[in-house]
Design a protein around this nucleic acid. Structure first.
Lengths: 177, 177
DNA sequence: TAGACTAGAGAACGATCATTCTCAGCGCCA
DNA sequence: TGGCGCTGAGAATGATCGTTCTCTAGTCTA
């Protein structure tokens, strides 16, 4: 197994474990076991746990936004499609809210790279929504709805939060015109 | 120092430390030091850390909602006052988002009491908003905005999220009539 | 005043966990 | 063929932290 393959397996294992149980609750040994990569190699690829966490977040950001982007694109860039995508996400088994918000809660004083990854994700999502909606104010309003629905769906376990937010978004978008 | 005084000091110290740094980052020894209550007494009042965390959350829920309730009541029960209260909260030094959302992120599999306290808080806030706004659907939409603004204000550090959410709320409330 | 109970300070215990080290095996080049 | 370097497996290290224990010194009661 070469180094890029090891890195890939590590990130795959890290994402499954970190997202499901939280970063702090998952030991490096669990990552080793799940990935099948030896501890020695793990520390060659990621010199410290914070490096692995940071890489996990950056990769999750890319994939999460890509999934959203593709879905919305297939719906002709309709901003309301964002909330339909959320509905699907919330209903997935193992949904546990936003990985970035959860990480923010986990680390009172996060390592700089981790804090940056969290902020980057939110900045990127905001920028994406602003590209979807002409009025930046309305885009930011939708962003707030997205975050709120995600938090509430995670805590209450009710995927219906997406529908509530969608209805609000529709009103806001209609009012804009 | 009697037992109720010790309990009070412990909860005071716990709230300051847990909210500021996160629960996991704060050891029982730090709580002892800040409160001036001995470890022995601490464990008499709260047999385990999870008990202290649960009590911290329950107390914070009561006070947080009381503060919001009083503010909004003084404004004649105007639902938009909720967002003005948020603006003040976001601007407080030491604001670090919603303690319950943060705790949710911290504990992948929370102790049952902790999970219940988190859910209770969100249920109570939702019920409060529903009492403020005749239309339950709109109340839930505002709830989503409240949560989203809180999360975003915490992560971006921008108290202006309250204003964004307020504008959205105004549109939603007007559309309801 | 003697003795039983209690509190506080802090050491001790035990578990967990990030990180490093050891060692035995295996391929690779001279 | 013979050593050199790299590997994986897993033990060892060192730190942190929740929880308990010990010991000393009061304090209240009989």
């Amino acid at each position: 197994m070469d180094s890029t393959e090891a890195t890939h397996r590590l990130l795959e294992a890290a994402e499954e474990l970190f997202y499901a149980h939280g970063v702090q609750a998952v030991g490096m040994d669990a990552v080793r076991e799940r990935s099948g990569v030896s501890l020695k190699r793990l520390y060659q690829c990621f010199p410290a746990k914070t490096d692995l966490v940071e890489a996990y977040l950056l990769r999750r950001d890319e994939r999460w936004r890509a999934s959203l982007r593709e879905f919305v694109h297939a719906r002709g860039g309709d901003p309301l499609a964002v909330f339909d995508w959320l509905a699907g996400w919330f209903a997935e088994p193992g949904f546990r809210g936003c990985a970035f918000v959860n990480s923010f809660g986990e680390f009172g004083e996060p390592a700089p790279g981790i804090a940056a990854a969290i902020r980057k994700h939110k900045d990127e999502v905001r920028a994406y929504l602003r590209g979807l909606v002409p009025d930046q104010g309305v885009a930011d309003q939708l962003f707030s709805l997205v975050e709120g629905a995600t938090v509430l769906a995670a805590i209450t376990g009710d995927p219906g939060e997406a529908k509530t937010a969608r209805e609000a978004a529709k009103v806001l978008l209609d009012a804009q015109k």
